[in-house]
Amino acid sequence: MKNILRLALRAIGVWATALSLFSAGGLHAQSFPSQPVRIIVAQAAGGLVDILARGYATELNRLWDQPVIVENRPGANTIIGAEAAARSAPDGHTLLLSNSATISINQFLYKKLPYDPERDFALLYNIASSAYIIVVNPSLPVNSLREFIELAKRKPGEIAYGSFGLGSSSHLETEYLSARTGIRMTHIPYKGVADVLPALARGDVQMALAGIQPAIPLLKAGKIRVLALTASVRDPLAPDVPTAAESGYPGLNLAGWFGFVAPAATPRPILDKISGDLAQISNRRDFKEKTIMRGGLVPLLQPPEQFAEYVREERARYSLLIKNLNLNLD
């Protein structure tokens, strides 16, 4: 009888503790946010991720009636920004607009990564994917992807390409393109697309992968030239740009993605509130068209469960790609 009573009291204690934690989390969620919120962007200002983050910051500011500040922490293939986010207080007041490098790539490139993408972050909402356009400096005597590949084959190692950083998705996807087409180029890493495109326009590098939206001003000014789009269909923002498949290179469907994460220890009710609010903003037709699709992105709009499955598939793909390329950045 005493054992039964002891077990019953223990069960009541566990239940009471769980109830108090749930209630506390619920109260936190009701009062969230209680101070300014920052969105860490691990890329330089002016790039695609930065523009996207600022669009969300404006809408979250209106929804939450609290300042939402974008903080750029570029460098080291997003590691600087990711580490800052991972070490932030797990109270929902620091978010990270992550990408494939942060969550799906770095763990396969660095043995001493200062954060664990699986342990340190909770997935909130996956916004969109972005196919690349293949752009070159106009000094190159090429007007199509086929002509570029033929030129690169004649000049192995002489053409330099810029990426968003060592081990970034643009680095890996360019190496994948090179392997698939039988060319060899010299890699010059930068801190983000906002640095790569000016370098390309100056002629510091001769080729790069970039998102459509950040490249439009330089394309209109004639300072860079577009050869192809790495998607299965043409993009409404650039309807005259052929796909890689149309250019004679099927299978070059290369894309990055962008999604919000938070420190993993953030209370579940707060995570649920943020995820729900991000979904509410993202699914508004005006926001989707003006902020997401206008930037050349393909909406994914994935809540946490779908986001997690997407990330699992991405990690498997990049793990194999990095192994085949024999890349290690430690």
Rank of each mutant, 00 (worst) to 15 (best):
N3W: 12
R6M: 13
L7S: 13
W15E: 14
A16P: 03
S20P: 02
S20Q: 12
F22P: 05
L27C: 07
H28T: 13
S31C: 12
P36A: 10
R38G: 07
Q43V: 12
A44W: 01
G47I: 05
L48M: 13
V49P: 02
V49I: 12
A53F: 02
R54L: 08
G55Y: 04
A57K: 07
T58L: 13
T58W: 08
E59T: 07
N61P: 00
Q66A: 09
Q66R: 12
P67C: 01
E71K: 11
N72C: 08
R73L: 15
P74Q: 10
A76P: 00
I79T: 02
I80K: 12
E83K: 15
A86R: 03
P90K: 05
Q107A: 13
Y110R: 13
Y110L: 08
E118N: 12
R119Y: 12
A122R: 13
I127C: 04
V136C: 07
L140P: 11
P141G: 01
V142C: 12
F148N: 02
E150N: 15
L151W: 11
R154Y: 03
R154N: 08
P156E: 05
I159V: 03
F164W: 11
G165D: 00
L166D: 11
S170Q: 01
H171W: 05
T174D: 07
R184K: 15
I188F: 14
V193R: 00
V193P: 02
A199Q: 03
A199K: 03
L200G: 12
L200C: 12
G203D: 04
Q206E: 10
A208K: 00
A208C: 01
I212P: 07
Q213F: 12
A215H: 02
L218F: 09
I224Y: 08
A228C: 06
P236L: 07
L237G: 15
L237H: 07
A244R: 02
P250C: 03
P250K: 04
G251K: 02
L252W: 05
N253L: 07
N253G: 01
G256D: 09
V261Q: 00
A264Q: 11
A264S: 14
P267D: 04
P269H: 02
L271F: 04
D272V: 06
G276T: 09
L278R: 06
Q280A: 15
I281S: 04
S282H: 08
K290V: 09
I292M: 07
V298Q: 10
L301C: 14
A308I: 03
E309W: 06
A316L: 14
R317I: 05
L325C: 02
L329H: 01
